[in-house]
Write a protein that binds this DNA or RNA. Structure first.
Length: 150
DNA sequence: GCCAACGTTGGC
DNA sequence: GCCAACGTTGGC
């Protein structure tokens, strides 16, 4: 089983939204590296941290599970969607998504600032310079360490 | 294939 | 709102 961290802006879709709907297609990924990870490395049953980005206190706020294998993101074919990609061929969809399922909120927000303060997490992609991926792998050691902070 | 211009992400 | 970092695009 693999572990992940997935970013979302709480103003758009936050942990409380996921708690309400329970299962959500994680649409809008438009980065090839992330697509390839979802396609090749992500599996139903994996666990992921829900991370709030671009907000007052960026940080990890909850845990979800991966609820499906990767499949075509329908928003790429929807001309009304902000994720519309006219260059994507329906016979060979360019963009994929996975469904995610709510598991629980953390007892508290573990902020980016706090994550950066722990030398143990120096190799966590999130805290590395210039990293902008919206989905990234978390190794088991880091996963356990972060849970230990809760 | 190079690379400048441009767009996006996301912390601050 | 600023800006660093990085991805994408398109001319050549």
């Amino acid at each position: 089983m693999a572990y992940w961290l997935m970013k979302s802006e709480p103003d758009v879709f936050g942990i409380d939204d996921l708690k309400r709907v329970r299962v959500e297609p994680w649409d809008g990924v438009r980065n090839y590296q992330v697509r390839n990870m979802m396609r090749d490395d992500m599996h139903k049953g994996d666990l992921a941290f829900f991370y709030h980005s671009n907000c007052d206190e960026p940080g990890i706020v909850g845990i979800m599970s991966i609820a499906s294998q990767a499949y075509a993101d329908p928003t790429q074919f929807d001309a009304d969607s902000k994720y519309y990609d006219p260059k994507s061929d329906p016979d060979e969809p360019r963009w994929l998504l996975v469904d995610v399922r709510y598991k629980r909120k953390l007892k508290r927000n573990i902020s980016l600032k706090e994550l950066k303060s722990h030398p143990e997490l120096a190799e966590l992609p999130l805290v590395k310079r210039g990293n902008r991926l919206s989905v990234m792998p978390v190794d088991e050691r880091d996963w356990e360490f972060i849970l230990g902070l809760e």
